[in-house]
Amino acid sequence: MTQLAEETPTQEKKTLGFWIYLMTDCVLFAALFATFAVLRGSTFGGPSGHDIFDLQFVLIETMILLTSSFTAGLAILGAGRGFKKQTLFWLVITFLLGAAFLTLELSEFSKLAAEGNGWTHSAFLSSYFTLVGTHGLHIAIGLLWLFVMIFRLWRFKFKKTDINRLALFGLFWHFLDVIWIFIFSIVYLIGGMA
């Protein structure tokens, strides 16, 4: 039982704290992007980005992820108005889209590994797998978070704290979109140039 008057400042603190966490995550990704930029040419006789990236495939991944951000937004709008069914529906859609994205990414990874272009092959491939994989790991954590929230919404009453958590999840999910845009441009577009 939290005192009602105390809730607003608590939420403000949480939002600020979460924003700052996202910025530190940004720095972590920045280090990985810098590493990718340095090691992009270190293919050690193996394939370069141009040889292995399938841009159409990546475009499909991108569209799925961007759509999931949109549906997450719809869920949060619904939650703000107290529409429980609508919220649940869009959260489930978001979850499915996120899971589809992750599946596609993993299938791309396993295809590369099967073709003999695994992460042990060259510094370039190590940095590629690590950067894209770290994003994928974040997506997986996001899905877990989403799963817990869907479960709670389905089982329990809608509480103010749930809506607040949903808003933080929205921040996280949109942030991963932004990171993906950078991955799409820097890794796949620039990194895929001949």
Binding site: F44, A123, S126
Partner: peptide, 10 residues
């Protein structure tokens, strides 16, 4: 992996 190794482009 080969981020910082002496071989394979690290």
């Amino acid at each position: 992996m080969h981020f910082f190794t002496a071989t394979a482009g690290g």
